[in-house]
Simulated assay, not measured.
Amino acid sequence: MDQENVSATLTIAAPAERVFAVLAEPNAHSSIDGTGWVQKAVDRAPLTEVGQVFRMGMYHANHPDGDYQVANKVQVLDPPRAIGWLTGEEKEDGHLEFGGWIWRYDLVPLGPSETEVTLTYDWSAVPQFIREYLQFPPFGPEHLPTSLHHLSELVSGR
Rank of each mutant, 00 (worst) to 15 (best):
Asp2Pro: 09
Glu4Tyr: 07
Thr9Asn: 06
Thr11Phe: 01
Ala14Ser: 08
Pro15Trp: 01
Glu17Arg: 00
Arg18Tyr: 00
Val19Cys: 12
Val22Ala: 05
Val22Gln: 00
Leu23Trp: 00
Ala24Gln: 02
Glu25Ile: 12
Glu25Tyr: 10
Pro26Asn: 13
Ala28Lys: 03
Ser30Lys: 14
Ser31Gln: 14
Ile32Gln: 10
Gly34Gln: 08
Gly36Asp: 13
Val38Pro: 08
Ala41Val: 03
Asp43Phe: 05
Leu47Arg: 09
Leu47Glu: 04
Thr48Ser: 15
Thr48Ala: 10
Thr48Gly: 06
Gly51Cys: 07
Gln52Tyr: 12
Arg55Asn: 04
Asp65Ser: 11
Asp65Gln: 10
Gln69Ser: 05
Gln69Leu: 07
Val70Pro: 05
Lys73Thr: 08
Leu77Phe: 15
Asp78Arg: 07
Pro79Met: 12
Pro79Ala: 14
Arg81Cys: 03
Gly84Ile: 06
Leu86Gln: 08
Lys91Glu: 07
Lys91Pro: 02
Glu92Lys: 04
Glu92Ala: 10
Asp93Met: 07
Gly94Ser: 02
Gly99Asp: 14
Gly100Glu: 07
Trp101Thr: 08
Trp103Ser: 11
Trp103His: 15
Trp103Tyr: 15
Tyr105Gly: 04
Leu107Pro: 13
Val108Ile: 14
Leu110Lys: 02
Thr115Asn: 06
Glu116Ala: 06
Thr118Gly: 00
Leu119Asn: 04
Leu119Val: 05
Leu119Gly: 09
Leu119Ile: 09
Thr120Leu: 03
Tyr121Cys: 10
Tyr121Ser: 08
Asp122Leu: 01
Phe129Glu: 15
Gln135Thr: 06
Phe136Asp: 10
Phe136Val: 02
Ser147Arg: 11
His149Gln: 15
His150Tyr: 08
His150Glu: 13
Leu151Asn: 07
Leu151Pro: 03
Leu154Tyr: 10
Val155Pro: 01
Gly157Leu: 02
